[in-house]
């Protein structure tokens, strides 16, 4: 690689603000790696920046999220906006490697957009740890909106709902997506519901199913808790039909949040959850460190041999850790 010394975070941020894509890409790499440099970058950003719009797009595999995101990018470009996308895919729990293949379906439409693939890196079943810090960085750099696209499986939807201002849940007709989403409690998290592949038979049924489930949610008080009945949009990602309406619905959601204290509340909640996640991650690192000391290995051997109870071992190890502020993660 280039023999010249890499510029520091502050210099990179300066260049990135000027529109240099290499610097943006580099900053994301640094944020993603965590540690002191990531903290330094976080420190360089304004503390409570409520600008920008983070849109989370999630849904079952095969619902057409990537194609839809691609069409959304084209629509945004037509409107003169410069969006960024974080396309999140899982890392292998065994090797830590990942195959990130979502951007292919966006690239054809992504002229001018910034698209970045991100692996979950050890955040099993959840969203990549670096997503909130990265979306904050991208929003700060003027990308509007910042779209986080991820396959909705397990914990991810919950995470994305806390990392996004607007959560878009994509379903498609004929696959029982709507029913599954309802079972998993996802309808509570969605701000906009999409029935993609609306040119297929069953699209109207899918819409009706969603309406019905929202009605039931209204009766049970779900809508009162979420504050607003999610809009349902029908799209055809292969042709772009309905995509302007989807964008309008997402923008309207952002506007309605900003009109009250919704946006502030959401971002406060997001930061709270981010703190919890950071804390957990740091504690886990601390635990790993403690287990890997001579004392830790001794205790572990005793527990394995059955000569010490896990509860006693835990007390010993905790006492050995002592109070020390975790750095980064």
């Amino acid at each position: 690689m280039s023999p010249s010394p890499s510029p520091g975070p502050a210099a990179l941020l300066r260049v990135a603000r000027g529109g240099d894509r290499r610097a943006v890409a580099r900053l994301i790499t640094l944020v993603e790696r965590g540690g002191d440099t990531a903290l330094e970058i976080a420190g360089l950003l304004p503390a409570a920046d409520d600008a920008g719009h983070v849109i989370g797009i999630t849904g079952a595999p095969g619902a057409g999220k990537s194609s839809l995101t691609g069409r959304l990018l084209a629509c945004l470009a037509d409107a003169g906006r410069t969006p960024a996308v974080l396309a999140v895919d899982p890392s292998s729990p065994l090797t830590g490697g990942a195959i990130l293949g979502d951007r292919v379906r966006m690239d054809g439409f992504a002229a001018g957009a910034f698209v970045r693939s991100m692996a979950t890196r050890g955040q099993q079943g959840g969203l990549a740890f670096a997503v909130p810090a990265t979306t904050r960085l991208l929003a700060h750099l003027g990308f509007d909106p910042v779209i986080v696209e991820t396959t909705g499986v397990g914990q991810v939807e919950v995470d994305i709902a806390s990392a996004a201002d607007t959560t878009v849940l994509v379903t498609s007709p004929g696959w029982g997506d709507a029913v599954q989403a309802n079972k998993a409690g996802l309808l509570e998290l969605a701000d906009v519901l999409v029935v993609n592949k609306a040119d297929r038979p069953g699209a109207r049924d899918a819409r009706r199913d969603l309406e019905l489930m929202l009605d039931l949610g209204h009766i049970s008080g779900l809508e009162a808790r979420a504050g607003r009945r999610p809009e349902i949009v029908l799209t055809v990602a292969t042709t772009g039909d309905g995509v302007p309406e989807l964008l309008a619905a997402a923008d309207a959601h952002r506007a309605s949040l900003a009109a009250g204290d919704g946006l502030v509340a959401r971002r406060r909640r997001g930061r709270r959850l981010e703190l919890a996640a950071t804390l957990e991650r740091s504690l886990r690192a601390l635990v790993d460190t403690a287990m890997d000391t001579p004392a830790g290995r001794r205790v572990l051997a005793d527990v394995e041999a059955g000569t010490m109870s896990p509860a006693d071992a835990c007390a010993v190890l905790l006492a050995g850790m002592g109070p020390q502020p975790p750095r980064g993660a």
Binding site: G62, S67, I99, G101, D102, V104, R105, G108, T238, T239
Partner: peptide, 10 residues
Amino acid sequence: LGTHVERIVV
């Protein structure tokens, strides 16, 4: 008729 972009399955 449109064009086709395949869903990547590696």
